[in-house]
Design a binder for these strands. Structure first.
Lengths: 237, 237
DNA sequence: CTCAATTCGTAATGGTAGTTCGAAATCGGA
DNA sequence: TCCGATTTCGAACTACCATTACGAATTGAG
C-alpha cells in the first residue's frame, strides 16, 4: 500500500465498517421478516450478525436506528424503479398504470421488502411527523404529491381518464388503496392464497384492473350504446 | 351461602367480575391506541385500570389474552352491522355498495377500532393459522367467502356489474383493497389529512367510488361523450 | 354480627433486554 | 519490527417486565 496517502487506510477501515454494517442490516432484515420487527431484540440481531452486543453499539445504538437504515435502502430502490417507469409512459393513464405495475412487480419479486414496509407503517406510523410518513408516497411518485393532481388533469385532457375525477382527491385515494392492498397481501402472504384459492399477485393485479377500469374514460364498448336515447338515470343524474 | 340457591350470590360476584373485566379492556384499548399494542406492558394496563398486577392475573394471564378479547368485541359489532346492511340491499351492486359503506362509516365513527384491527393484523398476522386470520373477512360478509363469488355472478346476471368480472377473484381483490385502504387511513389518521389536504373519510369514499365505477356495468353517463370523435387513448387502447 | 368466599395489595423472585467500560486483539503505516 | 489507531470482546451493571405467594381487606348471605 502506498505510503504518502492517508486516505487508503481510512478507506480500509471504512470499507470494513461498511461491510459490517451491511452484515448487520442483512441479518436484521431477515429476522424482522421471519419474526416481526417488534419481536426481534437487539440481542438476536447481534448474535445473528456474529457480533457481540457491545460491538453492535458501535454501529447502531438502537433497533430504531436499524429499522430506519433498512427503510432508506428499500425506499431508494423503489424511487429509482418508479421514476424510470413513469418517464417512458405517454398518456396519464399509461403513467398511472406503470406506477401500479411497479407495485405489482415488487409484490411479486420483493415481497419481503413490501412486508417490511407494511410492518414499518404499522409500528412507526404513530410516532412520525406527517412529513416523514409521507416520504413513502413521495418515493412512489418522485415528483411529489402535487403531481397527482396534474396527472389527473392531464388524463382528463388527453381523454384517457374519466372527466368526473377530482384532481385533488382521486389519485391520492387510489394510491392509498393500492398501497394498502399491496401491504396487506404481502403481510398475509401465501396464507391468503390457501384460503382464497388465488395467488397473491393475481389478486393484486385484479385490484389494479378494477381501479383502472374505474379511472379510465368510458371505453370503446360504450360506443355500442352511444347513440341510444338518454335514459331515465341520465336525465335525473 | 344458602344451599339451594347459588345463583344470586354467584351473579353478584360475576357482575363485579364483568365490570372489572370491561374496565381492564377499556383501559387496554385506550392504551393500545395511544402507544401501540407492542409498546404497552401489562404493568401499564394494570395501573391504567386502577388494579394491581396480581389482580390483573385473575382476569387475563397475558397481553395476548386481552388483545383477543378486544378483538372479539370489535368483530361482533362489525358482523352485526354488516349483516343488517346486506339484507336490505337489492341488486348485487347495491349489496357491495352497502358493505363498503359500512366500512366507510366505521372509519368515520369508530376509527380507533379500525386502528386496532390494523395493529392486530400487522402484529399477529404472522402467527395465525390462515383460518383464524380470515375470520376477519368472514365477519365482513357473514355469509362466507363463497358468497363473494355468487355475489359477482348475481351482479352480472342482474346487469348491475360488468360482465367481464371474475367471480372467483374480483370480489376478494376488492375487499382486500378496501380493507387495506381503510386500515391504512385509520392508522395514519389525521396526519394524512394535513398533508393531502383531504379528510380521511373523503379519501376513503373516493376510493370506494372509483372501485364501484370499475365494477359497475357500463353506465349511462358515458352517453355524454357519445358523439365526440374517438380520442387518441381510445384508438390506441 | 359472623362466616365463608372472593378480591386486593405488598413484596419478592426470576428473567431478559439494553447499556457501559476497560482490556485484548487487529489493522495500517513507517 | 514496532507504534498508534481502530475495532472487538467479555463481563458487569441497570432497569424493567412478568409472575407468584401470602396475608389483609372486602363483600355477600344468613
Amino acid at each position: 500500500m502506498p505510503a504518502r496517502d492517508a486516505a487508503p487506510a481510512a478507506n480500509k477501515y471504512r470499507a470494513h465498517r461498511e461491510r459490517q454494517r451491511r452484515r448487520i442490516l442483512d441479518a436484521a432484515e431477515r429476522l424482522f421478516d421471519e419474526h416481526g420487527i417488534d419481536r426481534v431484540t437487539m440481542v438476536e440481531v447481534t448474535s445473528a450478525s456474529g457480533l457481540r452486543a457491545s460491538t453492535m453499539y458501535q454501529y447502531f445504538s438502537s433497533k430504531d436506528d436499524i429499522v430506519w437504515a433498512i427503510l432508506g435502502t428499500v425506499l431508494a430502490d423503489l424511487a429509482a424503479q418508479t421514476k424510470e417507469a413513469i418517464e417512458t409512459a405517454r398518456t396519464a393513464l399509461d403513467k398511472i398504470t406503470a406506477m401500479l405495475e411497479i407495485m405489482a412487480d415488487r409484490l411479486t419479486n420483493d415481497q419481503a421488502k413490501v412486508r417490511f414496509l407494511a410492518q414499518f407503517d404499522a409500528m412507526y406510523a404513530r410516532d412520525w411527523p406527517a412529513e416523514r410518513l409521507l416520504t413513502l408516497e413521495g418515493q412512489i411518485n418522485p415528483l411529489g404529491f402535487r403531481y397527482f393532481g396534474t396527472l389527473i388533469r392531464e388524463g382528463i385532457a388527453d381523454g384517457s381518464l374519466r372527466p368526473d375525477l377530482d384532481p385533488d382527491l382521486t389519485m391520492h385515494a387510489v394510491i392509498n388503496a393500492v398501497i394498502g392492498a399491496q401491504r396487506r397481501l404481502a403481510s398475509l402472504g401465501n396464507r391468503v392464497e390457501l384460503e382464497y384459492g388465488q395467488p397473491v399477485d393475481r389478486l393484486f393485479r385484479e385490484t389494479i384492473r378494477v381501479i383502472l377500469l374505474g379511472l379510465r374514460a368510458t371505453e370503446i364498448r360504450a360506443a355500442r350504446v352511444r347513440c341510444a336515447p338518454p335514459s331515465r338515470a341520465e336525465r335525473s343524474g
